[in-house]
């Protein structure tokens, strides 16, 4: 296995505050790797160390095979980065921003012009290339920053909260670009986010970070399996305290009556269990007014590990599929 990022026992201290408290992980070549955690968990500090903008207090970090402390120039050559806060020159056009970036990375002439065109078309900003960045929308700026970060075809792309503050549609767009970049150019992506859905939709593997420490690491599925299986909620037309005894069928691992005549059933796979459950209830002539199910989310994983929710998250990260079922009338 080839690794593009290797971090060993990394520590960053600001005075007496430890922002990063001894983290270790590896990012595989060509992978999309995510750091998921609440604000202030040490995500940005880590990205700044990996991109050579900050020096670690102790520990080791290799990016593209180069040490971030002793070979920062080699690291810089191999990475592209989109910062959490804007970093564009507002008084220049989109094209000029990329042009200056390209020249700073040693590109020039026809080759640079072609790369700029490709990058701007990639993020669908080619038509706006001569507009001042000052007049770009938030989403356009983000896209331009992605185009800029990929301009010099870096081996590794760092994205610090790539969709923070963007509307849902734009977020989906940005995700598409990141996936496409990873697929078409084989770029290794390291991103930080505090959005569950973003980590889940994009990342091959996720490290959950809290208070400067990695508390869990794995694929979204692996992480969620730490919490358990799917839960199906069935609302009955008439509350029945003995319902659980009637529901001991294959596929239902446990049963619990919650208030208002609703039963919570723990199942392995909701999509397969629901039809069986409904068929069974129908045979017993028990009327059902509503069925919903909930898959454990990364938020449940976070709660499971820390006892807290990831703070100020936006959007709905709890995937709830609602299915309304009208019981057949007799």
């Amino acid at each position: 296995m080839e690794f593009d990022i290797v971090v060993e026992n990394l520590v960053k201290r600001y005075g007496s505050v430890e922002a990063v408290r001894g983290i270790s992980f590896q990012v595989r070549k060509g992978e999309i790797f995510g750091f998921l955690g609440p604000n202030g968990a040490g995500k940005t500090t880590t990205i700044h160390i990996l991109s050579t903008l900050l020096k670690p207090t102790s520990g080791k970090a290799l990016v593209a095979g180069y040490d971030v402390v002793s070979e920062p120039n080699m690291v810089r050559r191999n990475i592209g980065i989109v910062f959490q806060d804007p970093s564009l020159d507002d008084n220049l056009t989109g094209y000029e921003n990329l042009y200056i970036h390209g020249r700073l990375y040693g590109l020039n002439g026809q080759g640079l012009r072609e790369r700029i065109e490709e990058a701007l078309k990639f993020v669908e900003l080619w038509d706006f290339r001569d507009r001042l960045v000052r007049n770009y929308s938030g989403g356009m700026r983000r896209r331009l920053e992605i185009a800029r970060a990929m301009l010099h075809t870096p081996r590794i792309l760092f994205l610090d909260e790539p969709t923070i503050g963007l509307d849902p549609q734009t977020r989906v767009h940005i995700w598409d670009y990141i996936r496409k970049l990873n697929r078409e150019y084989g770029t290794t992506v390291f991103l930080t986010t505090h959005y569950m859905d973003e980590a889940e939709m994009l990342c091959n593997r996720i490290a959950i970070i809290d208070h400067g420490k990695i508390i869990a690491l794995g694929t979204a599925e692996e992480l969620k399996s730490m919490v358990g299986s799917d839960i199906v909620y069935v609302k009955l037309a008439k509350p029945d305290p003995d319902i659980c005894s009637k529901l001991s069928i294959a596929g239902v691992d446990s049963c619990k009556v919650v208030e208002g005549g609703t039963v919570a059933l723990q199942v392995k796979k909701a999509s397969e269990a629901i039809p069986a459950i409904l068929l069974h209830l129908d045979r017993l002539e028990i009327r059902v007014t509503e069925v919903s199910y909930r898959r454990p989310s990364l938020n449940d994983v976070f709660i499971h590990l820390t006892g807290r929710e990831i703070r100020d998250s936006e959007g709905s990260f709890i995937e709830v599929a609602r299915m309304r079922h009208r019981a057949r009338m007799r």
Binding site: S87, L88, H101, L104, Y105
Partner: peptide, 18 residues
């Protein structure tokens, strides 16, 4: 303040020359 400095600092071009 507007962040462009980070873009320059993270570039491989030597800082003294930029």
């Amino acid at each position: 303040q507007f962040g462009f400095l980070k873009e320059v600092l993270v570039a491989p071009a030597p800082r003294s020359l930029t």
